[in-house]
């Protein structure tokens, strides 16, 4: 059955993906001194602010850092479930 699990099962993140995520987190702190805690706080506050206006998938929110040509960027990926105003 394990083969079937492997074939069809939920994909677990590979060590490559984990490595990449951890690196991005660690570098975010190294580069602009933003700690993982601060990142969590940012995420929570962004969720709080945005969810006042639109319905979002709270579990799916991701706040990450990237760097493009020596400039650091904060990227928030916030999946929407549909705007509240429109439903009413």
């Amino acid at each position: 059955m394990r083969i079937l699990d492997w074939l069809f099962g939920q994909r677990r993140p590979s060590s490559r993906e984990i490595a990449k995520e951890r690196l991005q987190l660690v570098l975010a702190y190294d580069r602009v001194k933003i700690s993982p805690q601060l990142l969590e706080t940012l995420k929570d506050e962004l969720i709080a602010v945005i969810s006042r206006h639109v319905e979002i998938d709270r579990e799916g929110v991701e706040v990450t850092f990237t760097r493009v040509k020596s400039r650091s960027r904060l990227i928030a990926d916030i999946p929407l479930l549909g705007a509240r105003g429109q439903r009413k």
Binding site: S14, S15, R16, E17, A19, Q24, R67
Partner: peptide, 18 residues
């Protein structure tokens, strides 16, 4: 290791370090 997703790829490293 890269093939099996157990190592950062060249593209990953370049993307991170720009």
């Amino acid at each position: 290791m890269v093939r099996y997703g157990n190592m950062l790829t060249t593209a990953d490293v370049i993307e991170i370090l720009a």
